[in-house]
Design a binder for these strands. Structure first.
Length: 476
RNA sequence: GGUCCCGUCGUCUAGUGGUCUAGGACGCCGGCCUCUCAAGCCGGUAACGCCGGUUCAAAUCCGGUCGGGACUACCA
């Protein structure tokens, strides 16, 4: 039998990194086994579901490189793979379960149900203890599944091993609401059965719901899928990852210039490892060895620092031309306007230098703004640290004189001239060059100086050296 | 409270009775290199929650304990 897995996000928000990680593991296992990966959209919450979020989810999945074989957007033998299209199917299933006697109508009010729960708790019983089929049958209201009380529900979870729930702890849960809409348990289970899902790999938060799904699956006369409950993702405070922890939507990472390969690699490391000592590996390498049984049981803390480091590794590994192209939007964003061809040519001359110094693409922009716009003011800390020292004015004016004569204007010639100056003045490179860096970039941190000057051009370079001299003498 | 899950460096993890005075990675600290910053290289920091038991031998098996988490809806 071929393996079939699915991911079933709700379009009530952007694709969450936790959902993305679950999708990733499903995808890895499908690809590893040569099975199918299916995208279903669980949009039964009509109030909060939007087409924009659905689009965002599809885009994010594609961006991550998780292609699906069936489902929303690509079709397949099971309709459009949206739960909102299957209400009739869910109602039919619920009524037939009532007919066969394994489900029943319940028109008790929330207050009555609450009273039953309180009573059970007061008697130190499971809250669900008294929520069972009422003595007298009714023919309206919500529909509950009658959970068989004889035996425990036991299953072998691929990541957790044997898990067991006492039947008496499983309440007769609602499968169809009074308004005729399905609950998550019904819709999800019916879909898994109808779509022939063989492996359900999802977040551990659904572990307590699994016995319900198993009981329902049996009631439907279907065979039970394998379950794999993946460890949850936590924020740095040890709590389930949520909005409070900052960036939790995948599209945000895309917009902030993370590389999909890096995010893929990082996410795969959360709860899984390819072996004892490799951290960086390709999709194909992961596909080759991935197995759900190797997934870790403990929750993983999402560490933005490590993701950033990994992203830097991937950026440095890029083809220089790919980097240049990827960096462009970020450069324009940092500069605050579009650049023309001549300016791009300048950027190209320092692109490789910038690439080595970039972890996150937006940093590439920050490093080169000085090439295209005059900075408004010097970084105060940089100025205090390097420009207030003895002899700085002399360095600047001497450099100005030398730079005026540099010909041709390229990094090598500039370096020769400036190093000649350093030697003549008896200055160390660090001491003699930092003032020039601050003068032309406004900052004490920048790409290498000679290349920066070469890209900036002679006129601008001299202009900025003059500006610094003026500032020093108090007339700037 | 109840049910269930989890417990190796700050973090992600390797480890399935001896090869573990516990390995790799991020971070952090120090050094080298160096025009700054990165990168690179070298070195360092730091963990088997605790208590019992089984065994010649336990991070690995068992029990208990403590701690954390998820769930506990006519949300998903």
């Amino acid at each position: 039998m071929t393996v079939r897995l699915r991911v079933a996000p709700s379009p009530t928000g952007h694709l969450h990194v936790g959902t993305a990680r679950a999708a990733l593991f499903n995808w890895l296992y499908a690809r590893h086994t040569g099975g199918s990966f299916i995208l279903r959209i669980d949009d039964t919450d009509r109030e909060r579901s939007t087409v924009e979020f659905e689009e965002d989810i599809l885009d994010s999945l594609r961006w991550l490189g998780l292609d699906w074989d069936e489902g929303v957007g690509v079709g397949g033998p099971h309709g459009d793979y949206r739960q909102s299209s299957r209400y009739e199917r869910y109602r039919d299933v619920a009524s037939s379960l009532v007919e066969s006697g394994v489900a029943y109508y319940d028109n008790r009010t929330p207050d009555e149900l609450e009273a039953l729960r309180r009573r059970a708790v007061a008697e130190k019983l499971h809250p669900a203890h008294y929520i069972r089929r009422p003595a007298t049958a009714v023919t309206e209201g919500a529909i509950r599944l009658s959970v068989p009380q004889e035996e425990a529900v036991v299953f072998d979870d691929l990541v957790r091993g044997r898990v067991s729930f006492e039947a008496r702890d499983i309440d007769d849960f609602v499968i169809l609401r009074t308004d005729g809409t399905p609950t998550y348990h019904l819709a999800s289970t019916v879909d898994d059965v109808d779509y022939g899902i063989t492996h359900v790999a999802r977040g551990e938060d659904l572990l307590p719901s699994t016995p319900k799904h198993i009981v329902l699956t049996r009631a439907l006369g279907a065979s039970q899928p394998e379950y794999a409950h993946l460890p949850l993702l936590f924020g740095t405070d040890g709590k389930k990852l949520s909005k409070r922890h900052g960036a939790t939507s995948l599209s945000l990472y895309r917009d902030e210039g993370y590389l999909p390969e890096a995010v893929f690699n990082y996410l795969s490391l959360l709860g899984w490892s390819i072996d004892g000592d490799r951290t960086i590996f390709s999709r194909d390498e992961a596909v080759a060895v991935f197995d759900l049984v190797d997934v870790s049981r403990n929750p993983a803390v999402f560490d933005p620092d490590k993701l950033a480091w990994l992203n830097g590794e991937y950026i440095r590994a890029m083809e220089p031309s790919d980097f240049t192209r990827s960096a462009r939007p970020h450069v324009e964003r940092a500069v605050g306007r579009q650049l023309h061809e001549e300016e791009w040519a300048k950027f190209d001359t320092v692109s490789a230098l910038v690439q080595e110094r970039t972890r996150l693409l937006p940093e590439a922009g920050d490093q080169v703004v000085f090439l295209f716009e005059d900075f408004a003011e010097y970084d105060p800390a940089a100025w205090d640290k390097v420009m207030t020292k003895e002899g700085v004015a002399g360095i600047l004016s001497s450099a100005r004189d030398r730079l005026t004569k540099v010909d041709p204007w390229d990094a090598g010639t500039i370096e020769t001239a400036l190093r000649g100056m350093l030697e003549e003045m008896g200055l160390g490179a660090a001491k003699g060059l930092q003032p020039l860096r601050v003068a032309i970039t406004g900052s004490s941190v920048s790409p290498p100086l000679f290349e920066s000057m070469a890209a900036l051009g002679r006129d601008k370079t001299l202009e900025r050296v003059e500006r610094a001299i003026g500032q020093l003498s108090g007339t700037g």
